[in-house]
Design a protein around this nucleic acid. Structure first.
Lengths: 400, 400
DNA sequence: CTTGTAAGTTCAACTTGATTGAGTTAATAA
DNA sequence: TTATTAACTCAATCAAGTTGAACTTACAAG
């Protein structure tokens, strides 16, 4: 959400240490466990530097010794691994009528979650609710508050440089509010605010199918459709934090059933009018099938309901077009579909996507399928919120 | 072009100094000239640190004193500015049949340029040619070779993780070659290799309409259409360096003249089949107008040739669609159109673009028009190559 | 005309954190 | 048993940023 020209900040020994801590933690996370020498090789740091950093991380409880490994000759190296419960992060998804909360540990494992309906959604009420949910989750999980490293709050955008904007339609009373500062004060810890797609994208990185990737795109099904792009391990947020409005791009609107990628059509329509949860519900409603809960959707899917199938065909065609655009513009190592849809539906959508054959994405050296299914369900955004905090531990920040 | 998971590198005092040098240089560049105290405030560094860095930069000839400025009370601060000729960068654009070369100074000013046709375009011949062009340009400009900070080479992609790939169709003999290493050895200096759109995008930042922006998208007209995205002052390159294939995205193909954004059509076609230099030449050829040089195109434009006008209408409509996609996915502060087209044509295209009204891009607080015209002409990529090097001086690198 | 204050700079001592090199330990190979 | 190798620890060194006191100049107030 920075604007104007790039104003970078100076660094010093303290920042250097922070950076190197992230590097070391990130390597341990990826490898599972490592010895000092291996980390030194991988990071380019001296063994001594790694040793000092490990000592302090062990003091703080973030690392634990995990046996010794001797590869051939030489002194067996003590291995270090993340202490899964060496720290926790809170994740919240604030919606107009409810708040979902999650609690993740360092490994990205879900320790606790709850969803509460929201009577009022003005800033003060939301803060009150967040504090309450935090307390309840700490109580029922028995986790020491001091182990909380921060919180990530997922909110509907769009954002401005200093706060939220135009949310009047979705969340009244939130215009031009610096939500990060507000929540940070309310919860007495560092807080990150993001949109649902970005959070979910990072959630997939912390625990999901993109844990080993640093370049990927995540198509998120909320009420609309969003895109979260991770580039070199960091979120692509755009000039004002509103990048990834995939639902707004125009795709060929199907006039009949199941058009292929370059198919014949006579109208363009926003992707989210064809391939989103609300478009699905609308489609079913139009067909005389009142349906709203995930369970109902799942049973329709299990029964291979023909109306559902029709929607899937149309949605897949539209998504194929969108994936094509995403592949060509972002060059991700993979495209993940996830979010607030039942898993079987996501699976069908992934299966239904037809990819262009002639594309730079059709490389020989690719490690991953071009399209994958990620976290699904209505917690994926809230979990992603917490993941933002966890991911921050492993990803050196650019000194903006 | 990194793949797999994010493997960040450790930092140390030396890296810190490199980073802070970039920060300081960047601030001086943006402000034109500054005193030490102002830089310290802007960077968060101590005055002493800034002072040390300035001393070393002045020693190296990158900075010069630029008078004193007294703002109110206190000791008048000596101002420092970039020494425009404190360093130079080479830029090359390698095409199948020719190489364009440029020489830029620290301010991004073009000191020299030349274009040579290429007899053979195998790696060895190209290296030989580059060395020759470098010598000639150094001779005729009288610049000391030691002032060369590096070179940027623009080549057609696509790229693989370690080299070029699939370029067989465009440049034979270049498969899987590590071009950066090859050129770096040939020229005895650091070399960066990029595609045309990315280079041109950075060129616009070093000297052009986006000098003051850190988030923008650059639509580049080469033979096809490319997109260069600058995010937080750095290029968005994608997982394998092939991001920004804007020309491949499908847009509604016009069946008649001048369709509007969501207009009626019955076919989708790649953007570059409608709005690129080669599509223009094809269109004119189909209309019986043999035309190839920029001059011929300019005179057609001056004469308001109706066939040209027809192409402009179709191209503008297609570009409107593309700009809509780019705005929604990348959230740039502005979209720049530039590249190898005559200036008047670019101007017409910019004028012809119709923007969606309801968009997050339609913000109140925007500093820039949503669409701008950037560098044009056949040197814009080669100049961008040199700009990659210059820009690197002002932009701290993420320790990958 | 003198004096006080503010802003910018410089000098020297200090601190942080990474690097270097010598020495120690343990496992394998000869 | 001994040599070799890998991993680690300790202590000294070094690079670079920070801190605080002193110095310089310009403006403002008395």
């Amino acid at each position: 959400m920075s604007n104007g020209s790039p104003t970078f900040t100076g660094s010093n020994a303290e920042q250097t240490r922070r950076h190197n801590r992230c590097v070391v933690l990130g390597q341990i996370r990826r490898a599972g466990s490592m010895g000092r020498a291996a980390m030194a090789r991988a990071s380019g740091l001296s063994v001594q530097a790694v040793s000092n950093i490990i000592a302090s991380l062990e003091d703080e409880g973030m690392l634990i010794e995990a046996g010794q490994r001797s590869r051939g000759r030489g002194l067996p190296a003590p291995q270090y691994a993340l202490n899964p419960n060496g720290g926790y992060a809170l994740g919240f998804e604030v919606r107009p009528e409810s708040i979902s909360a999650t609690l993740l540990n360092l490994m990205g494992e879900l320790h606790h979650s709850e969803r509460k309906t929201l009577r009022d959604n003005d800033p003060e009420s939301v803060c009150h609710q967040l504090r309450q949910q935090m307390s309840r989750m700490l109580d029922s999980s028995g986790i020491d508050e001091r182990l909380l490293l921060g919180a990530g709050v997922v909110m509907p955008g769009p954002f401005t440089l200093t706060g939220l904007a135009n949310t009047a339609s979705v969340l009244p009373h939130w215009q031009d509010i610096d939500a990060e500062k507000l929540f940070s004060n309310a919860l007495s810890m560092p807080v990150l605010v993001e949109n649902d797609a970005n959070a979910a994208a990072v959630g997939e990185h912390v625990s999901g199918c993109t844990a080993s990737l640093s370049n990927y795109a995540f198509i998120y099904f909320g009420s609309g459709v969003g895109l979260g792009v991770v580039h070199q391990g960091r979120l692509f947020r755009g000039g004002s934090g509103n990048a990834g409005e995939l639902g707004h791009i125009l795709v060929p609107a199907p006039c009949a059933v199941g058009q292929s990628l370059a198919g014949v059509s006579n109208r363009m329509a926003p992707l989210e009018s064809i391939a989103s949860r609300s478009s699905l519900l609308q489609h079913l409603k139009d067909a005389g099938l009142g349906c709203s809960t995930d369970q109902q959707l799942e049973s329709l899917a299990a029964a291979r309901n023909p109306e559902l199938q029709r929607w899937l065909d149309k949605a897949s065609a539209a998504l194929s077009h969108a994936v094509h655009v995403v592949e060509n513009l972002f060059d991700p190592d993979t495209v993940v579909l996830g979010g607030a849809l039942p898993d079987p539906l996501l699976a069908e959508l992934v299966k239904g996507i037809s990819l262009a054959e002639h594309s730079t994405a059709q490389r020989k050296d690719r490690l991953m399928p071009r399209v994958l299914r990620g976290h699904s369900g209505d917690l994926s955004a809230a979990r992603g919120g917490a993941a933002l905090v966890i991911n921050g531990l492993f990803t050196p920040q650019t000194l903006s």
